[in-house]
Design a protein around this nucleic acid. Structure first.
Length: 582
RNA sequence: CGGAGCGUAGCUCAGCCUGGCUAGAGCACUUGGUUUGGGACCAAGACGUCGCAGGUUCAAAUCCUGUCGCUCCGACCA
């Protein structure tokens, strides 16, 4: 392709709308343009990258034995009602109406469609295992689209769904996808870590996310360099020490005045000096419209994902002074936040019936300080086993960097990351709901055991840029670069020897099947160099009068030194470099 | 949805506080010329419903109200 014949609208200045380096570069390098918030057009160069990522995904899915299909993006709401997600996923569902006013759904994902298909087409254990995948546009009514392609209303996802006759078979399907994902991201030049992920309230068996470490990521992963333990912070646990136990001869509860003290921090300072780890933090949440009390150690933070698992619902929020209903809850408890506690004898009336969920770390703790359910007062000498009636113990705390690894006790690290892929062992939730049943060897009817597997293709493309760029621009790996080679003649007069040489190299490389771009613009050298570095072609072949006088052209890898080579050897040397990176 | 900020040329922004003459700059674009190994220079030119609607005023980009859009922080997720 010739530069003057395609459209590569590079920008010298950074568009005001972009925050992330990768988002800025997508715009500046002329890969995408925004139509409106969360919706982007892929320009010729951006589309080439996207297609290359898709092709890698396709090859690896095929290698893993998955079958490519293409399902409708426009879907009937009935199947969503059957699975129950018409309600549970209502916030992300785009809905449209046809001329008869009938409602349709724009697919945010395709479990319902594929399971409906399989229900009709697969009836025997002999037809399994099967794994179907597609690369397709998804629609999600994101609350807040942001960061360019990272979180868009419309994006391209590779989704796959496996169907097995047995649980062991499903494990094997899961493992194959896990391995395929590792290969896919590696081929895209991405460093990823696979982390244990929260299965949420859907209660799937287990799940891994593929994360690209990056400060710009929206997730946090906890990992151990010593033993390889890695988990999403929502799921992560650690081997933190339990709290100091209640002494044998426990002192009696004692109320003391703490005027104006509303925080753990304030209570840990003089004149009170109750260390944070000797305090009990009391939180009140409204879950499914009912108040619940949550207890953590003073120096711990609540992990809301774990709370969701414990409560069995994601429909909860912290109680807040504003809504009247919440005010009634605080009135029942006898105090405002800052003076709340869960000591049995202080919970009277309705408050005595509020369920109390306590973090495991408090189990057996003694000598603690907590709110007295009376504004401006706290209680000391609290013994958890003696004074607090706990409805259920659970792991509710957020793991912090430096805590001991749950497997090997070495210090854990925390890193921000971008989620590019997710593998999920689903079980039979959808096959039961949508009747995907089969007959086993014994002639007995069973629901298929499913797994689902997603890769954000457009997000992966941006993640590559986020992980691989410098001040000059993008640094594309050969595998997904829009063009592997950019030929940069510094004189584009058609009659010039220099341009003839450039044309010759261009046609020879093209004939060898190399993705090559000829920068035939009549621009000054600086402009051409800057642009080729901004776009990030892995290899540039520079042709200038000076070096050509010596019979040389210049090979310039994006991040390597300039390599003068004989004109006659330019094509061969280029092909050799490309082979090295295959 | 809650909180914060921003809407002026294709892009980056100034002007707004303290209303006033023909609404500006740089980049990009067009034409001509000079240049040509790291984002050139000279000259001439084209490009604006100042997001939109209403109000205040002799007069509104500027003040007020509403509205729409965008960006950032939180809940959602590939």
């Amino acid at each position: 392709m010739r530069w003057t014949q395609t459209l590569i609208p590079t920008l010298k200045e950074t568009p005001a709308e972009a925050e992330l380096a990768s988002h800025k570069l997508l715009l500046r390098a002329g890969l995408i343009r925004k139509l409106t918030g969360g919706l982007y057009t892929f320009l010729p160069l951006g589309l080439r990258v996207l297609r290359k990522v898709e092709q890698i995904v396709r090859e690896e899915m095929n290698r893993a034995g998955a079958l490519e299909v293409l399902m409708p993006a426009l879907q009937p709401p009935e199947i969503w009602q059957k699975s129950g997600r018409y309600e549970t996923a209502k916030d992300v569902l785009f809905k449209v109406r046809d001329r008869a006013k009938k409602e349709w759904v724009l697919g945010p994902t395709h479990e319902e469609v594929i399971t409906s298909l399989v229900a009709g087409e697969i009836n025997s254990y002999r037809q399994m295992p099967k794994n179907f995948y597609q690369i397709q546009t998804k629609f999600r009514d994101e609350i807040r689209p942001r960061f360019g392609l990272m979180r868009a209303k419309e994006f391209i996802m590779k989704d796959a769904y496996s169907f097995d006759a047995t649980d062991e078979g499903a494990q094997e399907s899961y493992r194959k996808m896990y391995d395929a994902y590792a290969r896919i991201f590696q081929r895209c030049g991405l460093k990823t870590i696979a982390v244990e992920a929260d299965t949420g309230v859907m209660g799937g068996k287990f799940s891994h996310e593929f994360m690209v470490p990056a400060e710009a990521g929206e997730n946090e992963v906890v990992f151990c360099e010593a033993c390889g333990y890695a988990a999403n912070v929502e799921k992560a646990t650690s081997a933190v020490a339990p709290s100091a136990p209640a002494p044998a001869s426990a002192a009696a509860l004692e109320e003391f005045a703490t005027p104006g003290v509303l925080t753990i921090e304030a209570l840990s300072r003089p004149p009170y000096t109750a260390a944070a780890e000797r305090q009990i933090k009391t939180l009140v949440y409204i879950a499914d419209s009912k108040p619940v009390v949550i207890l953590l150690r003073g120096d711990d933070q609540l992990n809301e994902a774990k709370l969701a698992g414990t409560l069995g619902t994601a429909n909860f929020r912290p109680a807040d002074a504003a809504p009247e209903m919440d005010q009634a809850v605080f009135a029942e408890l006898g105090a405002q936040p800052g003076s709340l506690g869960a000591v049995r004898e202080r919970l009277i009336g309705q408050a005595a019936k509020y369920p109390v969920y306590a973090d495991q770390r408090l189990e057996g703790a003694g000598g603690m300080t907590t709110g007295a359910n009376r504004d401006g007062f706290h209680l000391r000498n609290v013994s958890v086993p003696r004074d607090i009636q706990v409805t259920a113990w659970a792991d509710l705390r957020l793991v912090q960097a430096g805590e001991p690894c749950p497997k090997c006790r070495q210090p854990l690290k925390v890193q921000r990351a971008i989620e590019v892929g997710h593998v999920f062992k689903l079980g039979t939730k959808y096959s039961v709901a949508l009747n995907a049943l089969f007959l086993d060897e014994a002639g007995k009817q069973n629901p298929a055991v499913m797994g689902c597997y997603g890769i954000g293709v457009t997000r992966t493309m941006q993640a590559v840029i986020e992980q691989s760029h410098d001040e000059q621009g993008i640094i594309w790996p050969f595998s997904v670069a829009p063009y592997s080679v950019c030929i940069t003649p510094l004189n584009v007069e058609p009659a010039s020897d220099l341009m003839k040489r450039a044309e010759q190299i261009y046609s020879q490389l093209s004939a060898q099947g190399v993705d090559v771009l000829l920068d035939d613009r009549n621009e000054r050298p600086g402009v051409k160099f800057k642009d080729s570095e901004l776009v990030g072609f892995p290899l540039r072949i520079g042709l200038g009068e000076k070096s050509l006088a010596k019979g040389e052209v210049e090979l310039k890898p994006r991040t390597g030194p300039l390599m003068p080579v004989k004109v006659e050897e330019a094509v061969e040397r280029t092909l050799a470099l490309l082979r090295e990176h295959r």
